[in-house]
Structure formats: structure tokens, C-alpha cells
């Protein structure tokens, strides 16, 4: 079985997928920002389920980011510990691409998905997935009125920044789907699992998107 972990945003979740691609177990936190207390317990329950059904955990997939630094850190650390302990491969799922793929699969009449993760204030981490043009690069974007021309018939917003994006873009009426959740990562995770597209358990780091900039304090100097 494949364990799929989502820890990049407010609500942590996980699911187990069998070799046929069916979701056989899933858990989602009831409260936001409960990654540290919920995810290890959910993993324990997932492992118990595998044991009861006499299955085996064969790989772990996780949302590589971008998203909450703390959330990504918790998911990555748990996944590394699991993979190192069980000697199984680790799969990094590009979160925004997975959301875009899930949305276009789920809404056949939509042509374009704006996959967005909240990055505080008016900023989002965004990747646009359109059926005919493919994927744009992942970027951090401050949303301003008129930034994108939204077609409420053909576009769908996906992620945890929908309310903010609708208000800032004056895109009332556009279809919105909340995420990211582990089940939305499954399709892309399965593709990578079947293609044996693994990352290094030892050296993998989350996709933070932004380089961290630290200032040098002038305090306490002559």
C-alpha cells in the first residue's frame, strides 16, 4: 500500500491507497494547525489497518510544498522517519500540480484551474493548470484586482485561499474547491509510484519556494 500524507496547509490528512489505486483508509484532522498531534496518531492508525488487513506499506508520498513551513517540516520529518525505518521509498508530490490535476479530473467542463495556497496577507503560492496550455511555474503572487482575467464558466479555484482570491479578483461566481487534502494528491502520487519516481530519504527537503532572508542585527555593537 501507498501512504499519502498532506501537511502543507491548515488541515492535515492522510490516506492509504492499494495497488489497484483505491483509497482504502483515510483520516482528516477536525481542527486546523493540529499537524503535530494528529498526524503521528493517524499514521499509527493507518499502520494498524495495514497490519489488520495483512498488507504491507510499500512507499510513502507527501505533498512537497509549497505551503506552511511548519506543516511541511512535520510531514517531511514523519515521512523520512517512516521510510528510513521501513527501508521503503519516498515520493514527493508537487502539491499545486496535484490540486490542478485533481480539479480538472473532477470538473470535466472546466478548462483551467488556479491552484492556490494561502501565503498570508494578499499573497498566494499559485500554479495555473489549463487543459490546452499545461502548467505555469509555481510562484508567490500578490493578488491585485485584474491580475488574472477570470472566466466563471471555465475556471475553477482550488486550495485554501479561495475566499481571499475571489474577493481580491472580484471573481464572484467562480467554482471553488477546498484543499489540499491527501485524497486530492492520490492521482499524481500513484503516477509517480508506478513510474518509480522517488526522492532521497536522506537528503529530501520540502519545496519552500522562497529563500529565507535573515537580517544581521546591529544591536550590541560599538
Amino acid at each position: 500500500m501507498l501512504l499519502v500524507l498532506e501537511s502543507s496547509a491548515g488541515t492535515p490528512s492522510l490516506c492509504l491507497v492499494n495497488a489497484d489505486g483505491h483509497i482504502v483508509f483515510q483520516r482528516m484532522a477536525e481542527h486546523e494547525k493540529s499537524h503535530a498531534e494528529c498526524l503521528p496518531v493517524f499514521i499509527q492508525e493507518a499502520l494498524d489497518f495495514i497490519s489488520e488487513t495483512k498488507g504491507a506499506l510499500l512507499a510513502v508520498a507527501l505533498n512537497e510544498g509549497p505551503g506552511s513551513y511548519t506543516g511541511l517540516r512535520i510531514g517531511t520529518s514523519l515521512a523520512k522517519g517512516l521510510c528510513f525505518g521501513l527501508q521503503i521509498p519516498l515520493i514527493a508530490v508537487p502539491g499545486l500540480q496535484a490540486l490542478g490535476q485533481w480539479a480538472l479530473n473532477s470538473f470535466p467542463k472546466k478548462e483551467r484551474c488556479f491552484a492556490m495556497i494561502d501565503a498570508r496577507r494578499d499573497e498566494v503560492y499559485v500554479q495555473i493548470y489549463s487543459r490546452n496550455k499545461g502548467l505555469t511555474p509555481v510562484e508567490a503572487q500578490i493578488i491585485t484586482s485584474g491580475l488574472w482575467e477570470i472566466d466563471t464558466d471555465l475556471d475553477v479555484f482550488m486550495g485554501n485561499a479561495n475566499t481571499k482570491a475571489v474577493a481580491l479578483l472580484h471573481a464572484e461566481g467562480v467554482a471553488c474547491e477546498e484543499g489540499p487534502y491527501a485524497v486530492q494528491l492520490v492521482s499524481l502520487a500513484l503516477q509517480k509510484w508506478r513510474a518509480e519516481e522517488y526522492v532521497s530519504v536522506a537528503y529530501f527537503e520540502p519545496f519552500y519556494l522562497k529563500e529565507f532572508q535573515a537580517g544581521i542585527s546591529k544591536k550590541f555593537s560599538l
Binding site: R73, L78, G81, L82, C83, G85
Partner: peptide
């Protein structure tokens, strides 16, 4: 430091669950 502790504690939890 919370961010530092999170890495050690969760790696340890993952190992504990796996083993």
C-alpha cells in the same frame, strides 16, 4: 527552538512507528 525540535521529534516518531 520549536522549528528545530519539530524535526527531531517527528523523525523519531516516524522511526518509532516504523520499527
Amino acid at each position: 527552538l520549536m522549528g528545530s525540535l519539530i524535526v527531531g521529534v517527528n523523525t523519531a516518531k516516524g522511526l518509532s512507528l516504523a520499527l
